[in-house]
């Protein structure tokens, strides 16, 4: 794409893109730290995630203000308009991922005093897959790589499936030993938050696709079937 006649317009777009990358980097960092907090059952690390989230929230507001100003001053069209509208949506999505990171971290600090269980490892593995997906989507965004975005969008089903497996195992644990219910519920929420982060990354995929192609990717991506109550029923 060539440069605008008004070079300040280019500068504005570049700054917004840079802010999103900065925000994405922090969100990635937050998820990494949250997973570490879960793995190590480390309340101090959890507290750091909470602090980091404040910065992420500030960036969200900053991006919103920048994009609003550019829309008001430059009346962007076509690709430029798509980039700016997507910037607003992507920063909101990243902010939500930040909130989920925070929630995971808070639950991790509750785990500190609880009994060690093998399942923590499965959740951390799911978290690593989610983190990888998030890193890739941020790369796809900075490269405007629509193909990679679609690939990630299609792959989210793997995270859904990991979630379902963990869900099933946790329910089995909890029904086997009611003392596990407190810990199990916390782990269940952590897994659910990770699954939500996966969904949010697919939303970013959709935005990248929209920026590049000017069309909507739609919502019929492969998804893991949510587990129903039939899990508790006898055959």
């Amino acid at each position: 794409m060539g440069e605008h006649i008004v070079s300040a317009f280019d500068d504005d777009l570049v700054s917004i893109q840079a802010k999103i990358s900065e925000m994405g980097g922090l969100v990635e960092e937050g998820l990494k730290m949250a997973l570490q907090a879960v793995n190590d059952r480390d309340p101090e690390m959890a507290e750091k995630v909470v602090e980091l989230d404040r910065k992420i929230d500030d960036l969200d507001i900053e991006i919103e203000q920048m994009a609003t100003t550019v829309i008001a001053l430059r009346q962007p069209m076509a690709l430029d308009l798509r980039v700016l509208l997507s910037a607003l949506k992507i920063s909101t999505t990243l902010e939500r991922i930040g909130d989920l990171n925070k929630n995971i971290a808070r639950r991790a600090s509750h785990l500190a005093s609880a009994k060690k269980v093998k399942l923590t490892r499965s959740i951390v593995a799911m978290g690593e897959a989610t983190l990888k997906q998030l890193t890739q989507i941020l790369d796809a965004h900075s490269e405007r790589d629509s193909d990679l975005a679609v690939e990630i969008w299609n792959d989210d089903i793997q995270i859904d499936e990991m979630y379902n497996t963990i869900f099933r195992e946790l329910v089995t644990y909890m029904s086997g030993d009611p003392r596990m219910i407190g810990l199990g519920s916390q782990l269940l929420f952590i897994a659910k938050n990770l699954e939500r982060i996966g969904d949010h990354t697919t939303h970013i995929s959709e935005m990248i696709y929209y920026i590049v192609n000017g069309e909507y990717l739609g919502d019929d991506r492969p998804k893991g079937e949510p587990l129903g109550l039939d899990l508790f029923m006898d055959d």
Partner: peptide, 19 residues
């Protein structure tokens, strides 16, 4: 035309890239 022009020249013009 304004949301998703097919031609690059159109895109360049409406986004203020050529005069």
């Amino acid at each position: 035309i304004f949301n998703n022009p097919k031609n690059k020249k159109t895109q360049d013009y409406i986004t203020g890239r050529i005069g």
